[in-house]
Amino acid sequence: MAKILVFTELHGTHVKGVTLEILGRLAGHNVEVAAIGAIPSDAVSELAKFGAAKVHSLKGANLEKYSPEGYANALKGFISAGSFDYVFSGATSVGKDLLPRVATMFDAGMASEVTNFVMEGDHFAGTRPLFAGKCFAKVELTGPKPHFVTVRPNALGLNANPTAGAAAASEASVDAGAIRAMIKDIVKGASEKLDLTEANIIVSGGRAMKEAANFKILDEMASVIGATVGASRAAVDSGFAPHAMQVGQTGKTVAPTLYIACGISGAIQHLAGMRTSKVIVAINTDPDAPIFTKADYGIVGDLFTIVPIMTQEFKALLGK
């Protein structure tokens, strides 16, 4: 039985969904959760339900906002004191930035953004996509412990942990140390919706959107079904959408439950970034567009007529 720490981030009274996905997969191990800041009691019970035995709120000066150095120093101190075998985190903006830094402080290795893993006894064996998902490989870690792993959101799915009980909540004081790269300001994004990498449903537009203003029809559909809007590289390079919305090999790799591709032909680099979506719907005027080879449901037709009809049908189906 390995001793494992799962690092999580707080969002109001909740922890990120990917944290619960990781916990569900670690049933049978001695698993503790830590976050920087005060973990609310609702979140503690949620974490316990998925198998956390202990939940630690890490507190210290200069940790109100994320800083790569401050968080890394704080987490390093806490991990050293707890002698963990593994440290997991979601492959979120913070997780992807922070974990390699902490791993290096232990001279330890890290597996990035695995989409699946098993613990064979105390040995971690993961699967991760490479080349933006054009192929997959088995990944294992060697060298000094603890070993570090980030897990892609939405990849494992939520599984209740049968050994779950109550979690002991505790506080630990941590030291942020010297911070040389300090946040001065946070500029909010255009969208308050879930990030593409965490979204359960994505509606994406391609070159056929013709102009930025036309993304309005995708926004309307997205608001009906609770989706985040994405774009292809062609649409981003044409200036229809910002790079933060780009799905594909030089944008974001996504794995939603439902991906609706509108006017996207399906370049190999785009398919690589979205092919692990559970269900794919494609709307395109070209019946031979490569996107149809990956689509579960392909609709040959003009997105400007199909999308509004589909939005109405979604409204009817969902009673909105």
């Binding site: 790269a181 946040i183 001065k184 255009a190």
Partner: peptide, 16 residues
């Protein structure tokens, strides 16, 4: 750039 296209603005002293 972080989730949702939001931006964290950092002041950093070189070397960095």
């Amino acid at each position: 750039e972080i989730e949702g296209g939001a931006l964290e603005v950092y002041g950093v002293k070189l070397p960095a």
